[in-house]
């Protein structure tokens, strides 16, 4: 693969980096990333992955853009209200960088479709907003040995962790099972500062780029937490739970399954 003059210029700030270089940029351009959820986390992740030149970017979401999304979902603009999020996201990504192939998946992930969906990608970004989806993505990725970035945000706080086969705990090691509906606050009830989605979604994009290029060390074996009010970033070292139901020694979960969607919320990815 030879670079065009336009590509040499577009990616020059990457290629000048020792950790990326021409080789690393080629790896990025061969990379295939799937972003599940074109919302607060998925928006900045999709923007930076597109700008970086990731070869194929999949984006899965069944929702349409709502006015209340625009406070943080920076890939969508005011004229996009009412449009399917995957369409709005694709238009913005291709305007930033026509080099990348954007694949839209206009559905919510379920136990029936998730395994075949993630099979076409090298790295998955969980940008969903509910626990059933986060556990489903974790289980499917662990079972399929698919590296992924987990993240969650609420109010002025966010956290993320990367999982790669054989390295560190999975999301289920940390939390076992989803909490009952409404047992812990959601962004809809508790709010979230818009820039929090930007900070954490960009960190997820950073992990994808590091995964593709091999630069540095991925956020496996640790949960990174960020509190914007105290401005504390903390990296909490964690070990696998040997009894984990999906990545443990005797897993009881051997294929993805759906938890019941919370009725009051109306499930969005």
């Amino acid at each position: 693969m030879a670079f065009s003059n336009e590509q040499l210029e577009r990616y020059s700030r990457h290629m000048i980096l020792d950790e990326v270089g021409v080789k690393g940029q080629k790896k990025i351009m061969k990379g295939r990333a799937l972003i599940i959820g074109a919302g607060g986390l998925g928006a900045p992740a999709a923007l930076y992955l597109a700008a970086s030149g990731v070869g194929v970017i999949g984006i899965a979401d069944a929702d349409a853009v709502d006015l209340s999304n625009l406070q943080r979902q920076v890939i969508h603009t005011t004229p996009d209200v009412g449009k399917p999020k995957v369409e709005s996201a694709r238009e913005t990504m291709q305007a930033i960088n026509p080099d990348v192939e954007v694949r839209t998946h206009k559905f919510f992930v379920t136990a029936d479709n998730i395994s075949s969906l993630i099979a076409d990608y090298d790295f998955v970004i969980d940008g969903t907003d509910n626990f059933p989806a986060k556990f489903l993505i974790n289980d499917a990725c662990v079972i399929s040995k698919k590296p992924f970035s987990h993240a969650g945000i609420i109010r002025f706080q966010g956290q993320l962790m990367t999982w790669v086969p054989g390295e560190g705990p999975c999301y289920r090691c940390l939390f076992n099972n989803p909490p009952p509906p409404d047992a812990v606050p959601t962004c809809r009830q508790a709010g979230v500062i818009g820039a929090m989605a930007g900070v954490i979604g960009c960190l997820q994009a950073m992990e994808a780029i590091k995964f593709f290029t091999g630069a540095g060390k991925l956020l496996t074996g640790s949960l990174l937490t960020y509190n914007a009010l105290s401005m504390d970033f903390r990296k909490i070292k964690l070990a696998r739970r040997p009894g984990c139901a999906v990545c443990g020694e005797n897993p009881s979960i051997t294929k993805p399954f759906d938890y019941a969607a919370p009725v009051c919320e109306g499930i969005t990815i």
Binding site: G39, N69, T128, A151, N176, T186
Partner: peptide, 25 residues
Amino acid sequence: SGEFETTIMKENDNVEFLYFMGGGE
């Protein structure tokens, strides 16, 4: 979680609390 009552802290133990954060949308 079933062992929270019976697990006794020792000098210099390093304790972390992890919280559910379900947002992302």
